[in-house]
Measured scan of single mutants.
Amino acid sequence: DPDTRIPVINLEDGTRLVGEDAPKNKDLVEWLKLHPTYTVDM
């Protein structure tokens, strides 16, 4: 689902973004380019 929010984690300080704070699936690739310290939180 393009509107599903994907949890991400900041590799530098461990900050996790989940729920309403997390980027949407459809925006994920662009969002990660803009926030290079974050990666998808598995």
Rank of each mutant, 00 (worst) to 15 (best):
T15Y: 03
E30V: 05
I9E: 11
Y38G: 06
T15V: 13
A22T: 03
E20K: 11
E30G: 10
N10Y: 00
R16A: 12
L11Y: 14
N25S: 11
D27G: 05
L28Y: 03
M42N: 13
L11S: 15
M42P: 02
P23D: 01
D21N: 12
N10C: 12
N10H: 07
V40I: 10
K24Q: 08
K24C: 11
T37Y: 06
N25A: 09
N10T: 04
R5C: 07
D13A: 09
T15K: 14
P36Y: 02
H35K: 03
T37E: 09
R16S: 15
L17Y: 09
D21V: 03
P7K: 14
G14M: 15
V18P: 06
V40Q: 11
G14F: 07
T15H: 11
G14R: 09
I6F: 07
L11F: 13
H35T: 02
P23L: 01
V8H: 02
H35I: 00
P36A: 02
P36L: 01
V18H: 12
G19N: 08
P2H: 01
W31C: 07
R16H: 14
Y38C: 04
T37D: 11
P7S: 13
D41E: 09
R5I: 05
R5G: 05
P7Q: 01
T37G: 13
N10P: 02
T39Q: 13
L32R: 06
N10I: 00
R5N: 06
L32G: 09
D1G: 00
D1V: 09
T39A: 07
D1F: 14
N10D: 10
R5A: 13
K33C: 05
W31T: 05
L11W: 08
H35G: 01
N25L: 08
P2C: 15
K33H: 08
L28E: 05
E30A: 14
A22S: 06
N25F: 08
N10M: 02
D27T: 03
W31E: 11
V40T: 12
D3C: 01
K33N: 11
L34W: 07
D41W: 00
D21R: 07
P7V: 08
A22D: 02
E30R: 07
V29E: 14
D41M: 03
L32H: 08
L28D: 04
W31D: 11
I9T: 13
D3L: 11
L28H: 10
H35Y: 02
V29M: 11
M42Y: 13
D1N: 14
T4I: 11
L34Y: 08
D21P: 05
V40L: 05
D1C: 07
D21T: 08
V18D: 15
K26A: 12
M42H: 12
D13L: 02
H35A: 05
V18L: 10
D27K: 03
V8E: 03
D1A: 01
P36K: 06
D41V: 01
T39N: 10
R16M: 15
I9C: 11
W31H: 02
D41K: 00
K26V: 09
D3I: 03
A22I: 03
I9V: 14
A22G: 02
T37P: 07
D1R: 00
D1I: 11
D1L: 04
K24P: 04
D41C: 03
L34M: 13
L28F: 08
L17T: 07
V18Y: 12
P36W: 01
N10L: 00
M42C: 14
V18A: 08
V29W: 05
P2G: 12
E20V: 09
P36G: 03
E20S: 10
L11E: 14
L28A: 07
G14E: 13
A22V: 01
T37H: 13
V40E: 08
V40D: 07
H35N: 12
L34S: 13
G19W: 02
L17R: 12
D21S: 11
P23F: 01
R5P: 13
E30D: 13
E30I: 02
E30W: 03
L28I: 10
V18G: 12
H35L: 00
N25R: 11
G19V: 02
V8C: 02
A22K: 02
V8S: 01
E20A: 10
W31Q: 02
V29G: 12
P2W: 13
K24W: 04
D3N: 13
T37A: 10
P36I: 01
T39V: 13
H35W: 01
K33L: 09
L11K: 13
L17Q: 11
Y38F: 10
H35Q: 02
D41G: 06
R5V: 06
P7T: 12
T39D: 11
D1E: 00
L34I: 05
K33I: 04
V40W: 05
M42F: 08
I9S: 11
R16D: 07
T37Q: 07
D41H: 06
D3R: 08
L11A: 13
L17E: 06
D27P: 00
L28P: 02
V8G: 01
P23Q: 08
I6D: 09
M42W: 04
P36E: 05
N10F: 00
E30M: 07
L28R: 05
I6L: 01
N25D: 11
D27R: 01
V18Q: 15
V29I: 10
T37V: 04
L28G: 05
L11M: 15
